[in-house]
Each structure stands twice: as C-alpha cells, then as structure tokens.
Amino acid sequence: MKLSAELRSFQDRLGHSFSKPDLLAQAVTHASMSSANRDDNQRLEFLGDRVLGLVMAEALLALDTGATEGQLAPRFNALVRKETCADVARQIDLGAVLRLGRSEMLSGGRRKQALLGDGIEAVIAAVFLDAGFDAARNLILRLWGPRVHEVEEDARDAKTALQEWAQARGLKPPSYVEISRSGPDHAPVFTIAAQLENGESQEATAGSKRQAEQAAASTLLAELEKST
C-alpha cells in the first residue's frame, strides 16, 4: 500500500517510517468510515491502550524507585487519561489525518477529545505491530516528553483542592467559565475563569479546557491561601 502525501507528512511528524503502511492507514480510520474492505482503528486502540499503560508504568517505576503504589497510581492515571492522550494527538496534528464519516466530520470529529485520544492509542499499536515494543516505547516517551517527569504526585488536582477550600467555608463549589477561545481548530487556546460565589476569580490560558481550568483553579487557590 502506498501512503497519501497527507499520511507521509504525518509519518514525518510522528517520527516513525512504517514498513507496513496499511497499519497506519487503519490507525487513522474511525469506525464511521469502516467498510467491508476497510478496517477501523478500534482493535488497534484496544492494543495501544495496553502498550501505553505498560510503557508508563515502567517509566514511572524507573523514575522513582522509592515510590509506593499509592503515589504511583495518580501519576500513572494522569499520564494515560484521555485528556493527556488527546493533547499528545493535537501536538502532532493527528486530527488532520483522521478518516471520518460524514456525520463525524460535520460534528467536529477532528477536534473531539475522545476521537483524538483513541486515535493516538491506535497509532501506538500500529507502531508496536510494525516495529516491536522498543519502537513503541521510544515513540511514547518522545511524544509524552516532559509530561512523564512533571506529572503531579498529589492525587488531588487543583480543582478538587479549590472545591474543598470552598466547601470548608460554606461556599458553593467553584464554577468555570470559558472567557475566550482562539487559535486554529487543530490547536485551540482557551481562557477559563475559575469563580467563587463570594466574587473571587482568576483566569488562566492553556491548550485545552481542562488544563486552563486546572491552571485557573491553582492560581485562585494560591491567591486565597495568600490572603488568609
């Protein structure tokens, strides 16, 4: 099978040249585009999720030889969750090459977190089947990059901590308001405000809503703790 120019460009962004190009073609084919002669990426997604999990578990154990299971679990979850996978997919513009049916295309499928997260897992599996575990591990560690070293150790995230702060003072849980969205569809930038019913508020900007919400919550919590 000969790859299209679009997929060859994606292959360059991915940093892996497929000896079996049909694996890459399958990895970017959503179920909405499957047919009797075209396999979708669901089986690859299943495999890729397991490969990703093994690589991350191995990496976290190597990084902190003294960490307990209770410390490792939240770090692991943060690295393999769908939001993180989707962020990695956006990083290499996976959405641009996803093969989607008309309904998914019209509903903005190239930007959907679930489709992007599933897609990068399918791509990981394709690399694993094409070149083996070492190639898949190298790909994952390169794409996840500093995320592996910077993953938070605390199971509580900033949004949870802010909610607990509010509840302890008899306030309603904080709300998160999208102030603006900019940038191209494949790499949007969100500005989110974290707000409390007492009027306290802080804004933050990031490449995903979740990251912006976390950053806004962290900033607001820091200001609240400073003032008290």
Rank of each mutant, 00 (worst) to 15 (best):
A62G: 07
A62W: 03
L63N: 14
Q71E: 13
L72W: 00
P74N: 04
P74D: 00
P74M: 02
R75N: 00
N77A: 02
L79P: 02
V80P: 09
R81N: 09
E83Q: 14
E83F: 11
C85L: 14
A86G: 07
A89S: 06
A89I: 10
R90G: 01
I92A: 07
D93H: 08
G95V: 00
A96N: 09
A96S: 13
V97M: 09
L98W: 00
L98K: 02
L98M: 08
L98G: 00
L100E: 10
R102C: 10
E104P: 05
E104S: 12
M105G: 08
L106Q: 15
G108E: 03
G109F: 11
R110Q: 01
R111I: 00
A114E: 12
A114F: 01
L116T: 03
L116F: 06
L116Q: 09
G117V: 03
D118G: 13
G119K: 13
G119A: 14
G119L: 09
I120R: 07
A125D: 04
F128R: 14
L129K: 14
L129D: 03
D130Q: 02
A131H: 07
A131D: 10
F133Q: 12
F133E: 12
A135D: 10
N138E: 15
L139D: 01
L139V: 06
I140T: 02
I140C: 07
I140L: 11
R142A: 10
L143R: 15
P146M: 09
R147A: 11
R147P: 07
V148Y: 03
V148S: 03
H149C: 05
H149Q: 09
V151Q: 04
E153A: 07
D154N: 10
R156N: 05
A158N: 05
A158C: 08
A166N: 09
Q167A: 12
G170K: 12
L171T: 04
L171Y: 02
K172L: 12
P173Q: 14
P173I: 14
P173R: 13
P174I: 04
P174M: 08
E178H: 11
S180V: 08
R181Q: 13
S182R: 13
G183E: 01
G183P: 01
D185F: 00
D185W: 00
D185N: 02
H186Q: 06
A187E: 01
A187W: 01
P188V: 04
V189K: 11
F190T: 08
F190R: 14
